[in-house]
Each structure stands twice: as C-alpha cells, then as structure tokens.
Design a protein around this nucleic acid. Structure first.
Length: 352
DNA sequence: AAAACGGGGGG
DNA sequence: CCCCCAGTTTT
C-alpha cells in the first residue's frame, strides 16, 4: 500500500501548519541554540515523557554536565541518580554509553547525519530525525505520537498505527509533507500542533486551521483515530523488601538482573507470586530461623505492563551467618545519594 | 511482530 | 480507571 499525495495537497497542509506555528511558537530551552549535545539530551529525556515532566531533569543535566565530556566522565551511579524518578532507566544507561562513545571514540564530535546518529545507543528513528533536523537542518521527518495522531486524523488513516502497515502509511505521508526548506520548523510545528490543537482528547477543532480539509472531522471519527490494535495486559508482582536495621546502617543491593529498574538500588528482596506476606526466610535462607513481623508499609506502583506490590519489613535482629555477596552495608544517611525506584524512594522518605 | 520498559497527568 | 506522553530495545 502506498499513500501518494498530490503536490497541492501536501503544500496546503504544510503551509497551513507552518503559518499556525508562526503564530503559536513554543519557546523551550534546548531550542535556543543548535548545540547537538543539548538537542540530543532533550530528545532522550522527552522520549515517552511530557515536556513538563522532563524539563527540570533537562535543566539539571545541563548544569551538572555542561558538555558531552562531562557526562562521559561521570560515574554510572551519579548519572542514574540524576535520572532518578524519570523512568525508563535504559535511557540513562544508553545516554551514558553514548556520551562515552562520543567523547572517547569520536573525540567529542557528534555524528552529523541521520545514519550516524542512529548508531548512538538510545537513538532510534524518531530521535535521529529530530536531531538531524533541529541541529543540522536536514530534511528528516519526525514521527512521534503527535504525528501519528495528526496525520491519521487529517488523512483519515483507519489502519491501526501500531502495525507495520499503519506505520508505513504514516511514514510515507510524513516524508512527503516535510518542508525541504525549513525542516526544523516543520517538525517543531507538527509536534506542537499535535500537543496543543490536535490533542488526544478534546481536540480544538473549532480553532484548527486544518479542519476544513480534515478527513476525520468530515466523517465524525475524530475520537476514533488514531486506531491502536494492541491492548494492555498488566501482571501482578509482589516484592518483599527487608529493611535491616543494624545500628545506623542498613543493607542494599543493585538490581543487575534483566528486569525492571536495572542499575537502580533496592533493599534485599524476596519475590513471591501471591499477596500473602511472608513470615520467615526459610525458602531463601534454609536453616535460618528468623521471624518476620508483618510489613510496616505496603506500597503499590503501576508500570506499563506490571503492577508492583511492595511490602516493607523492618528487621532489627538480623544475624545470619553468611550474607549474599550482592548485599552492601550502607549508612542509612547515605541512601539519599543513590538512585532507587520511585516506590522505594517513597518508603525511605516516609520511614527514615 | 510483539513485548518490555516508569512515572506522571488528564478526563 | 484508562489512555497518553517529542520511542527504543529486546525477544
């Protein structure tokens, strides 16, 4: 399936959109100059993240790591701490890896074309197009959630956009629509337009400069588009955390497994498949008879594909002979400087 | 092609 | 409660 537009259709869309953007600019700090480092950083932070949520993190990163070399020279723990609370932590790990790659293998010089950008860890088609256009004025069309929505509505795309065919249709449309003269402005324009006018819910069609030729508007299918086919299944998990009080110290470990929250810290953990609180460590440390009091606190955190139930047990008389190698004894006061998942950070703040 | 990966905000 | 967010990587 191909979606070819006439030059007239494309020009109309493009010019209406650019005119709207002229009248509705959105000043953001990373747009003030064309520093690819700042643009890259902002784009990674904004992946699946709203501007309002990512902005404080961006400001912190720029201050803590003014250049890609500063970021490359930071420790993993420091970078993870800077990212704490923002979610999708692979972004932080990939960001750090890419910074080291640029600083050490490329002498601090950013790739300056789409293909080169794509080789950076954490940079996919969207981010490569964004950097290529914003930093280098190259004509690569960004395709993000806004673009899927705007184009599927305007051009009446009823193919689900989360399928190969649906993505291809949107991509072909986007590639025909982007301005060859001012690709950066065009990309900014369509994303802002999607965020402010052609919104997911309650789009502002009455003041939309494109509504007179909008396919979805014409057949009343605005709230049906874009169509998505996949539905979400959420798994329940039960994490039992041992808060071992040893004077002014406690024990923590770093999550290194292939699972959520990799590279963040946690208290010693036992996972069960059911809700029932545990009362001993028999299944994990056979022969060690320790009675666990009922959890001091229970917290729940909902992630995209799982719901985590955190049960926090206070243990004051822990004296097992041997401890797992991964456990590290730390002063309770030092926990502030390490990165923990949101739920654990909440517990620490409330309890200590 | 599908699943996994966080956390916050809006209706 | 469900959907969405300036998506990418892994399976």
């Amino acid at each position: 399936m191909t979606s070819r537009l006439t030059a007239r259709e494309a020009t109309h869309f493009r010019e209406k959109l650019l005119r709207w953007y002229d009248e509705n600019p959105r000043p953001l700090p990373w747009k003030s100059d064309k520093d690819p480092y700042k643009i890259w950083l902002s784009e990674i932070i904004l992946q699946q993240t709203q501007v309002s949520q990512g902005l404080p993190y961006y400001l912190h990163f720029i201050e803590a790591y003014p250049t890609v070399r500063d970021l490359a020279d930071a420790s993993t723990d420091e970078v993870m701490k800077s990212w704490e609370g923002l979610g999708y932590y692979s972004r932080a790990r990939n960001l750090h890896a890419a910074a080291k790659f640029i600083a050490n293998e490329r002498d601090g010089v950013f790739p300056d074309d789409y293909t080169g950008l794509l080789e950076l860890k954490g940079v996919g088609p969207y981010t490569a197009a964004a950097i290529a256009s914003f930093a280098y004025d190259l004509p690569h069309a960004v395709i993000d959630g806004n673009v899927y929505r705007v184009l599927s509505r305007y051009f009446g795309v009823y193919e689900a956009v989360d399928t190969t065919i649906g993505k291809k249709i949107i991509t072909q449309l986007a590639d025909q629509l982007i301005s060859r003269d001012i690709p950066a402005a065009y990309n900014q324009a369509i994303m802002n337009f999607g965020a402010l006018v052609c919104k997911p819910k309650a789009p502002v069609c009455h003041s939309c400069p494109l509504s007179n030729r909008c396919g979805a508007k014409a057949d009343g299918s605005i709230d049906l588009l874009p169509i998505k086919s996949k539905r979400l299944i959420r798994k329940q998990r039960y994490f039992h955390y041992l808060i071992i009080i040893d004077g002014d110290n406690t024990y923590i470990e770093k999550r290194g497994v292939d699972d959520i929250w990799k590279s963040l810290y946690q208290f010693p953990i036992l996972e069960t498949s059911g809700v029932t609180p545990i009362t001993s460590l028999q299944n994990w440390m056979p022969g060690y008879n320790l009675h666990l009091n009922k959890p001091k606190t229970e917290l729940k955190q909902t992630l995209t594909h799982q719901e985590i139930h955190g049960l926090f047990y206070i243990v004051r008389d822990f004296n097992a002979d041997t401890l797992p190698d991964s456990w590290v004894k730390k002063p309770i006061s030092s926990l502030d400087t390490l990165a923990f998942p949101k739920m654990i950070r909440t517990f620490i703040s409330d309890y200590f």
